[in-house]
Simulated assay, not measured.
Amino acid sequence: MLGNCFTLFMATMAVICSVGSAYDPDPLQDFCVAVDDSKAAVFVNGKICKDPKFVTPNDFSISGLNRVGNISSLVGSAVTKVFVDQLPGLNTLGISLVRIDYAPYGLNPPHIHPRASEILVVMEGTLYAGFITSNPQNPNMRNKLFAKILHPGDVYVFPKGLIHFQYNVGKGNAVAFASLNSQDPGIITLANALFGSEPPLNSDVLAKAFHLDKKIIKYLQSVPWMQN
């Protein structure tokens, strides 16, 4: 009896560990071009596959990453996504790409990708980029910031699920490209999520969490928050 329980325990732990360490599911075929079918009766963790007989080279290609994004926003940056919704051929491949344009002193605000790590390469300009660690095990320690100045040709990695950012510290525009190990990494911009949620988060919660007066919280909840 004890042996059977131990075997069951080990099998369960193996399943948990394998799921916990996985990112996007591994493909079981050469490709699975996504079909935009909101009325499909089958739910899958990803997209439904297009019939291979109707797949074309265009399903694996996208244009436009040579164009500068609209950097006239309040934060002074623009992210051009190449996720599965923009490029259906990415479905089940576990990768995606973004181009990030920055105006002078433009910011890609602190955000997280809940489903992906990210590797960024600077093409033009000078960026101050970094990430913040999760809660340390020692209660007397603070979350640690890892950040540095990046120049053209420099590469920086942002671990999965950690808060990270990029800030253009130069006087001219900047450009970076980043790859992520998910076809749909998800983006949670912290300020947008906390102060611009629908319905609004209780102002008492935010006031206590940020040690701010409720009037300031109410103001922050009243201003428009844009998705980058």
Rank of each mutant, 00 (worst) to 15 (best):
Y156I: 15
H113W: 02
F6Q: 14
I149M: 11
S197N: 14
M141H: 14
N138W: 05
P139W: 02
T126S: 12
N91Q: 02
C17W: 09
N173C: 12
V15Q: 13
C32I: 03
N4A: 14
T189M: 15
L93F: 03
N143C: 14
M123N: 12
P224R: 04
K148P: 02
R115Q: 05
Y102T: 01
K144D: 10
G130H: 09
P159N: 03
V175W: 06
Q227K: 14
V205W: 09
K215I: 15
L8S: 15
N4F: 11
I163S: 10
L28R: 12
A103E: 01
C49W: 02
D30Q: 15
C49Q: 04
H211F: 14
A207D: 04
D30V: 13
P159E: 08
P52D: 02
A129Y: 08
N173L: 11
N108F: 10
D37E: 07
V223L: 07
L162S: 06
I95C: 04
E198C: 10
T12M: 13
N168P: 04
S21T: 11
V157N: 03
E118M: 09
G170P: 08
S179L: 08
A147L: 08
R99I: 01
I149L: 14
S63V: 10
D154S: 07
A116L: 00
G125Q: 12
